[in-house]
């Protein structure tokens, strides 16, 4: 009989006979547990994925229905048009076929990531628009999200640590401004001062990094304020927990307690709201892109609306929704992986 030390856990080693058995038993249990964990996690992920797909399908169907109940016609603005030309256009774009056939065709094309031609400028397909606008919007949105998360977290943490002192009040003022002032107003105020009066940044368009500063700030204010407020509450709650007291009692440095114990635990609620915040940035980008004349998807969407260009509206709505659904899916999965307190049971009650 060999004397072995269980490599996994300190299991009673006074009895040699017991040691190996309990070690093996323990290993087996651990393996079984992790297997079950992996399987339920997979099932949960699959279930979430299934719902993400169903949601996306519902979005496509809903937008299709909405677009086809529109009273106006995309060719109505062209003015007087010979009936023959009009009919040819209808046939060309498949608008003469029964709705169900149009819907089926559209669904088939969407699955292949083909959103068809734009009705307004037939030489350009919606795909081209999206391919051109999406990177710009992604750049703007990602930059705004990074600004919001970075400064929001710092502001929230500082406010909670200096409760009822000036940093707390400063963060409160920023939070109030961010929540009360709509982004388009903030954008115009920023343009008025930083671009027109003081000439620090360019007024509009999208070329160099200086051009990206003002729109990113305007877009990030609301999420920034939201994160700061949430982080403050979350930090205050975590700082009152027993394990923080334990960490302090152990003699850990204040910075160690805050970084290792407080912030890491306080971050959890922030992850859950990332989906909502991204939705906010996406819808905010319509206006911000329009004000600053940024050639992104938001601008394309707004133009599509005023032109009654169905394929453009449908295409951008679907891309927006797909991005959001994907993000919410990732956040859901990440949350269960990160927070051990959440147990995935496979079935949602």
């Amino acid at each position: 009989m060999k004397w072995e030390v269980c490599p996994i856990k300190d299991i009673p080693h006074f009895s040699i006979a017991n040691l190996n058995i309990s070690c093996i038993h323990f290993r087996f249990q651990l393996l079984r547990k992790s297997m079950i964990g992996v399987i339920t996690m997979l099932r949960y992920t699959l279930n979430r994925f299934k719902w993400a797909i169903i949601t996306l399908w519902a979005v496509i169907t809903l937008t299709f229905i909405i677009m086809h109940t529109i009273p106006g016609n995309p060719f109505a603005k062209e003015g007087a048009m010979p009936p023959a030309v009009y009919e040819n256009l209808q046939v060309h774009y498949g608008l003469d076929k029964p709705l169900l056939t149009q819907y089926g065709n559209y669904l088939l094309e969407v699955v292949q990531f083909d959103f068809g031609p734009s009705l307004k400028s037939s030489s350009i397909s919606v795909n081209d628009y999206i391919l051109k606008g999406f990177p710009v919007s992604l750049h703007l949105g990602a930059q705004a999200l990074v600004i919001a998360i970075f400064f929001g977290l710092i502001l929230g943490v500082v406010a909670s640590l200096k409760r009822n002192k000036w940093p707390d009040y400063l963060s409160m003022i920023i939070a109030i401004v961010g929540i009360s002032v709509p982004n388009f107003i903030l954008a115009t105020i920023l343009i008025n001062y930083f671009a027109i009066k003081w000439n620090i940044f360019p007024v509009a368009t999208w070329a160099t990094w200086q051009h990206t500063i003002l729109p990113s700030i305007a877009l990030s204010m609301m999420p920034l304020a939201f994160i700061a407020r949430l982080m403050r509450t979350s930090m205050l709650e975590v700082m009152g927990q027993d394990y923080i007291l334990t960490a302090k009692a152990k003699g850990l440095k204040r910075s160690g307690v805050i970084i290792k114990h407080a912030i890491r635990n306080a971050l959890l609620p922030i992850i859950t709201v990332l989906g909502i915040l991204t939705a906010n940035i996406v819808t905010g980008s319509f206006i911000i892109e329009r004000i600053f004349g940024i050639p992104g998807m938001g601008d394309m969407f707004v133009k599509g609306i005023s032109n009654r260009d169905y394929p453009v509206i449908l295409g951008s709505t679907i891309v927006y929704s797909a991005v959001l659904i994907l993000l919410i899916f990732i956040v859901d999965i990440a949350y269960t992986l990160i927070d051990p307190r959440i147990k995935v049971t496979g079935e949602k009650k």
């Binding site: 719902w51 949601t55 677009m67 529109i70 609306i305 959001l324 919410i328």
Partner: peptide, 21 residues
Amino acid sequence: AEVIYAIPYLLMVILMMVVLK
């Protein structure tokens, strides 16, 4: 409700306003 809620509020409102007068 969840499926409809997946579409951002403002996006949905804008889409509806395209249809309505």
